[in-house]
């Protein structure tokens, strides 16, 4: 027991000035990634404690997906093209939407439980941890029962659409596609976190949840079905179309260089804004709550 304080200082020096900036960043990234891994493991373990729940989650999400497949059925039934998109392309786009929904749902529960955490002060316990509170709060619980069906079916749809439309599958294309997909993941996280942060100021958040769900659904169909102005708004002002359309357009070789830059810039911009709003929200929490 007497040993409790002796090696205290040694542990602090790791964060001292001796290290270069870059290696500090690398160490932090490693730590955050490791923690994400721990969160994933713990979430899965917790979820498997309640098997009925897990099965119910999968079933409900599958129901949701079947409904999205109805849209594909409508398109194939009508056999129409949307702009340059054949039904096979449309299948690819809707598949991307389903796939991305799975990734969004993975951490979505953290967004919706944010309001409870604020109301009941559970946020306190995360504020005192020496890590990014946003990271801890928004990625703590990962829901695999929702990811699973969306991921499987979405991937299959993307695969079928990709093949049937005869799109290239060389290394460069695949790598570019995966990169854009990751950008989209970041964009989704940032863009949809922002409205949920309103819960720091208003008590009931049902409306916000409804609203974001409705907005998310815009990607159910490729952006080309919307009017020119809406496409502009959805690309530049509220860049939800970027999320699922850009990776698809890239595969088709329809993404211009300018848009390519935007595909990377938009997520970064959205992330920065989300960070700023988060800080604002936290400030209001720390100065107002009781």
């Amino acid at each position: 027991m007497g040993s409790f304080f002796e090696d205290k200082k040694g542990d602090m020096s790791k964060y001292g000035a001796g290290r270069t900036f870059l290696s500090n960043v690398a160490a932090a990234a490693k730590r955050y990634l490791h923690l994400l891994h721990v969160f994933a493991r713990f979430s899965l373990m917790s979820q498997l404690e309640y098997r009925a729940n897990f099965v119910a989650g999968v079933a409900v999400e599958t129901g949701w997906m079947l409904i999205k497949l109805l849209y594909v059925a409508v398109i194939y039934r009508a056999g129409i093209n949307i702009g340059v998109l054949t039904p096979d392309h449309i299948m690819l786009f809707i598949g991307l939407y389903v796939l991305m929904t799975g990734f969004y749902m993975l951490y979505y529960g953290n967004f919706t439980s944010l309001s409870t955490m604020v109301r009941e002060g559970q946020l306190d316990m995360y504020l005192v941890k020496p890590m990014s509170t946003q990271f801890l709060v928004t990625l703590r619980r990962l829901d695999f029962s929702l990811l699973l069906p969306d991921f499987v079916v979405g991937a299959v749809m993307v695969g079928i659409g990709w093949r049937r439309a005869g799109l290239p599958s060389d290394f460069g294309t695949v790598a570019g596609f995966l990169f854009l997909f990751m950008c989209s993941c970041l964009l989704t996280y940032s863009l949809f976190l922002i409205p949920h942060l309103l819960c720091f100021w208003i008590v009931s958040t049902r409306g916000i949840t409804d609203m974001t769900a409705a907005l998310w659904d815009f990607n159910n169909m490729p952006q080309m079905i919307y009017g020119r102005w809406m496409q502009r708004i959805g690309t530049f002002i509220l860049p939800i179309f970027v999320i699922t359309n850009f990776p698809g357009l890239f595969l088709m070789g329809e993404l211009s260089d300018g848009m390519m830059i935007w595909a990377v810039a938009a997520p970064i911009l959205a992330f920065v804004i989300a960070r700023l709003v988060w800080k604002r929200a936290l400030r209001s929490y720390t100065s107002a709550s009781s």
Binding site: S204, I208, D210, M211, A213
Partner: peptide, 9 residues
């Protein structure tokens, strides 16, 4: 506020 957001959505 909740109601109007929900209506709007």
């Amino acid at each position: 506020a909740d109601f109007f957001l929900s209506l709007f959505s």
